Simulated assay, not measured.
Amino acid sequence: MSKTLTKEALLAASEDDYMNDEQLEFFKELLNDLKQQTMAHIEEMKASLSQPPEINDEVDRAQYEEESRLSLRILDRERKLLPKIDKSLRRIKDKSFGYCLETGEPIGIPRLLIRPVSEYCADVKMVNEGREQHYYSQRK
């Protein structure tokens, strides 16, 4: 993490300082750390799944298979996160990071600290999710 900027300082910063070079550097380091952690976790899970234990009991086998299915879902989500991290890092480079892709408004430091790959402000995200739910409910 950045030596000069903490999460607390980031949250306390004035709106005029939004996405200045120091803040962009903070998020660049945060995203690079997240990418490394995600890649390490993916490799760890792959190794674990590639060496299944020998299980003779049917109940234990069923539990292992359910845990493996869950692990595969997590693995898939993390695999999909990597391109989002790369996209966010490119947005940092071109200084568009932290701004809503749809409205151009600031996404906000609190939201970016929770989900640094956010591309939309909370209002736009809620509208988009509402549209998705409506679309899927109409298809049923």
Results as ranks from 00 to 15, higher is better:
residue 99 Y to R: 02
residue 106 P to I: 14
residue 108 G to W: 03
residue 120 Y to W: 05
residue 121 C to E: 12
residue 114 I to R: 07
residue 99 Y to I: 05
residue 105 E to K: 15
residue 91 R to G: 11
residue 91 R to A: 08
residue 122 A to I: 15
residue 88 S to Q: 12
residue 109 I to Q: 06
residue 97 F to P: 14
residue 102 E to T: 04
residue 113 L to M: 15
residue 116 P to Y: 09
residue 116 P to N: 04
residue 117 V to F: 02
residue 96 S to N: 09
residue 98 G to K: 07
residue 114 I to A: 09
residue 120 Y to V: 09
residue 96 S to V: 02
residue 104 G to I: 15
residue 107 I to S: 01
residue 98 G to A: 09
residue 91 R to P: 02
residue 120 Y to M: 01
residue 120 Y to H: 13
residue 90 R to K: 12
residue 92 I to Q: 00
residue 89 L to Q: 07
residue 90 R to Y: 10
residue 103 T to K: 03
residue 116 P to G: 12
residue 97 F to G: 06
residue 114 I to L: 15
residue 97 F to T: 11
residue 89 L to Y: 01
residue 122 A to Y: 15
residue 111 R to L: 05
residue 101 L to W: 04
residue 112 L to Q: 04
residue 97 F to C: 13
residue 90 R to I: 03
residue 107 I to F: 00
residue 103 T to C: 14
residue 97 F to R: 07
residue 119 E to S: 05
residue 95 K to I: 02
residue 111 R to A: 02
residue 94 D to T: 01
residue 99 Y to K: 06
residue 105 E to Y: 09
residue 108 G to V: 12
residue 95 K to T: 06
residue 90 R to L: 01
residue 100 C to P: 11
residue 104 G to L: 15
residue 110 P to H: 00
residue 96 S to M: 14
residue 121 C to T: 11
residue 119 E to V: 15
residue 98 G to C: 00
residue 109 I to S: 08
residue 109 I to D: 05
residue 95 K to L: 12
residue 99 Y to D: 04
residue 119 E to G: 00
residue 112 L to P: 04
residue 117 V to P: 08
residue 112 L to D: 09
residue 91 R to L: 09
residue 109 I to W: 00
residue 121 C to D: 08
residue 107 I to Y: 02
residue 96 S to R: 04
residue 115 R to W: 04
residue 111 R to T: 15
residue 119 E to M: 11
